[in-house]
Simulated assay, not measured.
Amino acid sequence: MSSSNFEDLSLDLQTEIVARVASTSLADYFNMKKSCKKIRYLAEEGFVYGKVCLEKIPIDAWYSSNGRISLFINQCLENENPEALFRQAMVEYFCWGEIETATEYVNSAAVLDHHGAAYLLGLMLLFHGEEYKYDGIKMLSTVKKSSCFNGSVPTYRKLLIELLRKTKIQNLDVLYYRPSCCDDRVFHGYCDACFCDFELSYIFNALDRC
């Protein structure tokens, strides 16, 4: 599309186009901002920050001391970018032990249909003690049985493991509590609880290597 044709579009449609580019590639988003003042202005709209793709940003950026990175992430959070909310929930819970704040962020991500929210919330419930164990198993069993969620599990598992290995974990439940889910000898290895133990084993292994 030529610049003249782009200028002929309504402002809302221009913003939608910029948001769509931002939602598919972070590199294209930043390159686009360099193209002209008009697009740079549109790229700073809250609607665009809510859509921008964050998958190429390493998880340790969420606790970076770099002011520009922090400003960018905060803009994404303020404009309810689902991936930003999800990652913030992960950091709040595992790194800082801020359970209530993490719950607020993960619930916000879930409302926006983030595929990893149910996975993260299920793990949080498992670490919250025996009283919540079966709620956690139920939540993760939903993840296991949903093709939409299940296809994303390896991605979010990898992100969590990266976080656990790169930062200091201050949540004492995560550090010292080792929940175990399956006590079914007949269906051991195949039940929903075993799936939860399988996911927990990744976390335990990452923590043991820290």
Rank of each mutant, 00 (worst) to 15 (best):
Y177S: 09
K34M: 12
Y177M: 03
G67A: 14
L140V: 07
I69L: 13
Y176V: 14
F195M: 11
I69H: 01
Y119M: 11
N81R: 00
I203Q: 03
L159F: 00
C36E: 00
L123H: 12
L160H: 06
L125N: 11
I39Y: 04
S2L: 08
Y132D: 00
L112I: 06
L112D: 01
S152R: 14
E131C: 06
L126P: 10
L123P: 09
Q88P: 05
M124P: 05
K168V: 15
E16K: 11
S3C: 06
S64F: 05
K33E: 11
C182L: 02
S147C: 07
M32A: 13
W96C: 00
V21Y: 07
G129W: 11
G136V: 07
E162R: 11
T103S: 11
C182N: 09
L85N: 12
K166T: 10
A84K: 00
R157Y: 04
L121Q: 15
H128L: 05
C210P: 01
V91C: 12
L71G: 05
A61K: 06
L172D: 09
I169G: 08
T155H: 06
Q88V: 01
W62L: 14
C76D: 09
L159Y: 01
L9R: 13
C148E: 10
V48S: 04
Q170W: 03
Y134F: 14
I17C: 10
Q170V: 01
K33G: 14
F195S: 00
S180L: 13
Y190D: 13
D28T: 01
N5I: 06
P58K: 05
T101F: 06
D135V: 04
E78D: 13
A206G: 12
L77F: 08
V153C: 07
C194I: 05
I59P: 00
N150G: 15
F204C: 03
G46R: 02
F30G: 06
H114T: 07
P179Y: 10
R178C: 10
E7A: 13
I59G: 03
H128F: 06
L125R: 15
A102D: 12
C148N: 10
K34N: 11
V174Q: 05
L121K: 15
L200V: 07
I39S: 01
R209N: 03
R165N: 14
K37Q: 09
S35D: 02
N5E: 15
C148P: 08
N5M: 08
L42G: 04
T15F: 02
F149V: 02
A89G: 15
L126A: 08
P82H: 12
R185Q: 10
E131F: 00
L42P: 06
G46T: 08
D197A: 14
R20Y: 12
N205T: 11
S201E: 13
F127N: 04
K166M: 03
A117V: 00
S23A: 15
K51G: 10
S35P: 01
F198A: 00
A22S: 15
F94M: 05
A61G: 05
A110W: 03
G151T: 11
R68H: 03
E162G: 00
Y93A: 14
Y190P: 01
S141H: 07
N205H: 07
